[in-house]
Design a protein around this nucleic acid. Structure first.
Lengths: 236, 236
DNA sequence: TCAAACCTTTTGTGATCACAAAAGGTTTGA
DNA sequence: TCAAACCTTTTGTGATCACAAAAGGTTTGA
């Protein structure tokens, strides 16, 4: 049974400035995102408290937060688990990302100055480096940083938390699918996006971001991968 | 000082089937949405525990949930308060609503059968009734129910939680602004939306929903109201 | 008069415990 | 053999307490 497989969660070390709850949140969020907790695996407060060597209290708060952000699912009987993916839900999440993120990009455009543009270029070359080193995790992290940097140029940003929730829901599945790929052909549309920013061309920027997302998740949309990972086949 | 004004929160009675935390969440959510807690007012766990006559524990969990949903804001010093509105943020929230909700409507369209259409018509006439009775609260509630019913026709719905977060952020301000109006001229675009649904016309549906939202919040966008309620002037 | 120093009160965080309900075994009985 | 009845263990919820840090007064001293 799935639920008795041992938990293997990466523990980072906690800085004194963050509360235990915040540290637990980061650790669990990372574990979900990196597929360390398989969908369908149910999580209990006491088991996690033991695994992270903290009292049940911070675990409780972190689990509640992740549930509110839809990274975890709370069942009717109050069990908490990593939600399973379905092909239709995958589709909905990708389309919601495209709509929200291209909107957020267009809304950020008027606020992008030369400093921010430089930072975006730096992040883009770091993505290329990570990709050349075949470092999948760093590629994903830097790619998220690029998008986050772009949207948060807008000082009145309200969409980013919603976008992060979508990333959190797609994350585990994308990484599981990614880990099955022998080759990573993925190229991005960041050059087009940067050009559109230079030209202050909102429509081109939206199209570049939409294409970037669509092509970035397309690899996971192949029938074989969907069948391999979706719904039931997660059982150990 | 704002923070010493007495709390006046409507207490509903709690059904045995819901946990205390869930009840507290509903009560506080409603209080925020109805403007019973003014923006800038800071909330403490012990004060609310006293006011709702429960232990601090359920208050803590409910406050955390509302903060994660952006209904409340957590400051650097860990104080929790109802966030203040700014003209720019108001604008961003409305535009995010338009983008997300017209998308959600179009995505729900293929799943709307005759039963759901009938329910939408019923809700629309209930909105008209409430409006004729000059019952502002019932009008808002039924209007939200209409939108929620429409979007959740899609069984793979992922946008609704994001949309509800936006409602939660706009809610207090819209109601405060509404309470200042002598006359409510507001008409909605629900008839157009219903017609578009009958015709299975996704684009018309999107346009109707977009117009419905834009016109529904326009009353609050007048300069006088913005100046009256935005940023600082909430002090008692 | 007024800021610095000090002290008291209030605060959120985290630990611990009790308890009812759910989950999960085991025994029973035909 | 197998489902019903029973019992044990595990679970999330909610209450309570301790404590360090923050907030908010008050006193001091020039």
């Amino acid at each position: 049974m799935n639920n008795h497989s041992p938990l293997d969660i990466t523990l980072t070390d906690r800085k004194d400035c963050v509360t235990i709850t915040e540290w637990v949140y980061e650790v669990l969020r990372n574990a979900v995102m990196c597929g360390q907790i398989l969908p369908g695996r149910s999580l209990t407060i006491r088991e996690l408290a033991g695994a992270l060597n903290v009292s049940p209290m911070p675990i409780r708060e972190a689990l509640k937060k992740l549930s509110t952000e839809r990274a975890l699912e709370v069942r009717e009987n109050r069990r908490i688990l990593v939600p399973k993916m379905t092909a239709m839900k995958f589709n909905e999440l990708c389309d919601a990302r495209i709509v929200l993120e291209s909107h957020a990009a267009a809304r950020a455009l008027p606020y992008i100055n030369d400093d921010i543009l430089e930072e975006l270029k730096t992040l883009d070359s770091e993505i290329d480096n990570a990709r050349n080193m075949k470092n999948v995790e760093a590629t994903i992290q830097n790619n998220q940083a690029f998008h986050r940097q772009l949207y948060s140029a807008n000082p009145h940003q309200v969409s980013l938390p919603l976008i992060e929730s979508l990333w959190l829901q797609l994350g585990p599945f994308l990484r599981l699918a990614n880990s099955q790929l022998k080759e990573h052909y993925i190229i991005d549309r960041h050059q087009e996006a940067l050009q559109a920013i230079k030209n202050k061309d909102a429509l081109s920027l939206q199209l570049a971001i939409a294409a970037d997302i669509r092509e970035g998740v397309a690899f996971a949309g192949t029938l074989e991968l969907l069948h391999q990972f979706i719904a039931e086949p997660y059982i150990y």
